[in-house]
Amino acid sequence: MNEENHTTVTEFFLVGLSHYPGLLLSLYVLCLVMYLVILLGNSILIIISILDPRLHTPMYFFLGNLSFLDICYTSSSIPQMLIIVMSERKSISFTGCALQMVISLGLGCTECILLAVMAYDRYVAICNPLRYTIIMNKGLCAQMAAWTWITGFLVSLVQTVLALLKPFCGNVIDHLTCEILALLKLLCGDISLNVFIMTVASIVILIIPLTLIFFSYIFILSTILRINSSEGRKKAFSTCSAHLTVVVLFYGSALFIYMKPKSKDTKTSDELIGLSYGVITPMMNPIIYSLRNKEVKNAVEKFLIKNLYLKKI
């Protein structure tokens, strides 16, 4: 596209899956139900990690961060998406689109780094158990969490600003939300700088954390296999299996979206994978941790029984 043909954009039209009008009502109901499950499940995890003294450990501190992040991440896009899906105009203001993109991208980047931090926490807990409380002290945990959020939003801000400063040759986004890959297809002129920055960001946010997680679990698995007690091996593995399941779900979707060859047209499969990345994974996180972690399961049961009992009284 030539820069001379650029358009002054005041709003964007989100037309993702609009060529399947029969799916829109089903999509609305499905996303609404999943969003409510996300809010309920992650809120319960945050509450029990605060109220239950047994969960006042670095592992559950980071899990609380993950749950809060998932609530914010889905809240930045799903409510607006639900409005647009059922709207005839399907428009969002330029400012609204920019805010949605910087927040959702920032939270997605933050989650990538946070999962690597959680893997490091599991590595220290299993491979250096005697020094765990010394290494993973409150000060270090707070610093790691803070820098995780700061780094994620700095990466998002750079990519978003570079994209929005370019002239646009259209304002129709073939996606359900203001997603940066879909927005880049509307830019006029040369976008090689944007592609380069996105490639660097993908390496920093996706590849490096995933590599750290991979090597962490190599050491973790090696240590677990050296444990003589079968009960000890089972307990050690149970503390890692939930996190590893979340990593596979999250990074699988993220790598498919951001690391595969880019095409000009958005495929339906890309939109559905994006929905999985942005909705299904945050919904599954509290379910996975509740089912795979005995301490979380017991704390959730205690919380629910206590509240149900008090309501009956």
Rank of each mutant, 00 (worst) to 15 (best):
I46S: 11
S67A: 15
T199G: 09
P79T: 07
S253W: 09
A125E: 15
S67I: 02
S26T: 14
A116E: 08
L212M: 13
C127G: 10
M283K: 01
S253I: 04
L39H: 10
A116K: 14
S75Q: 10
S229N: 09
I84A: 03
K297M: 12
K302V: 07
I71G: 06
G170N: 01
G108T: 08
I83Q: 10
I191A: 00
K260M: 13
Y60S: 03
F303C: 10
L66W: 10
C178L: 05
V300K: 00
I220M: 01
I218T: 05
C112P: 02
R54D: 06
F250I: 04
G232I: 02
R226L: 11
V117R: 09
E4S: 09
L162A: 09
L157H: 06
L249D: 03
I224E: 03
L225K: 15
I227G: 07
R226Q: 12
T10S: 13
G278T: 12
T199M: 06
I287P: 15
F61I: 10
M118I: 02
C72N: 05
V246G: 02
E231L: 14
A254R: 02
N194H: 08
L55K: 05
D174Y: 04
F303L: 09
V279A: 03
I150G: 11
I84T: 08
S104T: 13
R233C: 02
S202Q: 07
S241H: 10
L186M: 05
L187E: 13
V9L: 01
S67D: 08
F153A: 03
K234M: 11
T199W: 08
I205E: 11
H56N: 08
G274R: 14
K138T: 07
R292S: 12
T148W: 00
T10W: 12
L66V: 12
I224V: 11
L206G: 13
K166R: 15
F13P: 08
V117D: 09
S91A: 09
C240R: 06
I313R: 15
D270Q: 08
N137I: 09
N194S: 08
N128K: 15
L184H: 14
M86Y: 09
V158F: 06
K297Q: 13
P129I: 06
Q80M: 14
I288R: 01
A119D: 02
L157S: 11
V279G: 01
S76L: 06
I205G: 09
L225W: 14
V248A: 06
W149M: 07
L25S: 11
I103T: 15
I126Q: 07
I113W: 01
M198W: 10
G16R: 04
L164Q: 06
Y217T: 09
Y123L: 13
N194Q: 08
